[in-house]
């Protein structure tokens, strides 16, 4: 019976990292009305960056974040500038999905080309060790992941609610046209937001890569989980995404005790059930009339 509290602990610590990756996804959606299907493969890309830095340059993955966070930020801003900004017209939303899917396919192909198809994992002294507290087994890497998530959430909160830039972001979220009219550079807001949304995958990818064996193919599994989380949390709601991530990952860990093969199905089953009852997700606002 001690499995249950342990599973819940694992779920909350692991869920914090998913919360961070999902927050990036939902932030991008809130500002730009774009679902970035590439988020999953970008997490994998970030994991490979950390992996390559630690294997070839012997840079500790945690220290490597100083390199990977700006790198992923730049990748995100570049995707926004090169592709998303150029979409126009009525089908813009649908097209953004397909464009980000195409970006994901290109990145996946590139990762196969560079790293091959075999599973790898990030190694560090803190990956396979941990502490025992009150009978709980707490691996350091999960504690680090949860810590990074808390720090990143605090940073995003401060940025959104305590800075002028954050005010521009929130204004753009509320009404793009009005934001432009009062002099906000919406393109710049979009590029930086996309950069931040993708930048958080650097931390997420590092922890993901240290706790899972991964290959270029892992992006599909990740994005399907992340999409379920952001839909459940209500698209555009950062708090909703965080709550949904903690809930989903904990649910998966708990089901994993009895039904290891079907644990992943929890995500999709919960999603389907919730949407049958409440189509806008738990924290979502009712969808505006399509424009």
């Amino acid at each position: 019976m001690s499995q249950l509290p342990q599973a819940i602990t694992d779920g909350i610590l692991g869920g914090a990292v998913y919360a961070l990756m999902a927050a990036g996804l939902t932030l991008i959606f809130g500002v730009m009305d774009i679902i970035n299907i590439a988020q999953g493969i970008l997490v994998v890309l970030a994991a490979y960056l950390s992996y390559a830095l630690s294997v070839h340059l012997h840079i500790d993955p945690l220290l490597g974040l100083l390199i990977t966070v700006p790198a992923m930020f730049a990748v995100g801003a570049a995707i926004e500038w090169a592709f998303m900004r150029r979409l126009r017209g009525r089908e813009r939303t649908a097209m953004s999905l397909l464009v980000s899917y195409a970006v994901a396919v290109v990145i996946e192909g590139a990762l196969y080309q560079v790293f091959g198809a075999n599973d790898v994992a990030i190694q560090a002294p803190y990956v396979n060790s941990g502490v025992h507290v009150l009978g709980f087994d707490l691996p350091y890497i999960y504690l680090i992941g949860a810590g990074l998530a808390v720090v990143a959430f605090a940073a995003i909160y401060l940025l959104l609610y305590r800075t002028t830039f954050g005010r521009s972001v929130r204004a753009t979220m509320q009404d793009k046209v009005a934001a432009r009219l009062i002099g906000i550079n919406v393109n710049r807001v979009a590029a930086i937001t996309f950069g931040i949304g993708v930048g958080v995958t650097a931390a997420g990818g590092m922890v993901f890569g240290a706790t899972n064996a991964f290959s270029p193919n892992s992006g599909y599994d990740l994005i399907s989980r992340l999409l379920s989380i952001v839909i459940l949390g209500g698209l555009g709601s950062i708090g909703g995404a965080a709550a949904a991530a903690l809930f989903m990952v904990t649910a998966e860990e708990v089901v994993n005790i009895w039904q290891p093969v079907w644990a992943t199905a929890v995500y999709y089953a919960v999603l389907v059930i919730v949407l049958l009852v409440r189509p806008v997700g738990i924290f979502g606002k009712p969808e505006a009339r399509s424009s």
């Binding site: 959606f29 599909y220 999709y268 389907v272 189509p279 969808e287």
Partner: peptide, 17 residues
């Protein structure tokens, strides 16, 4: 039952099931 993005995501989720 849902539209636009949410519809796309649901189809992906059902695909993975």
């Amino acid at each position: 039952r849902v539209r636009r993005h949410t519809f796309v995501v649901i189809t992906i989720a059902i695909f993975f099931i």
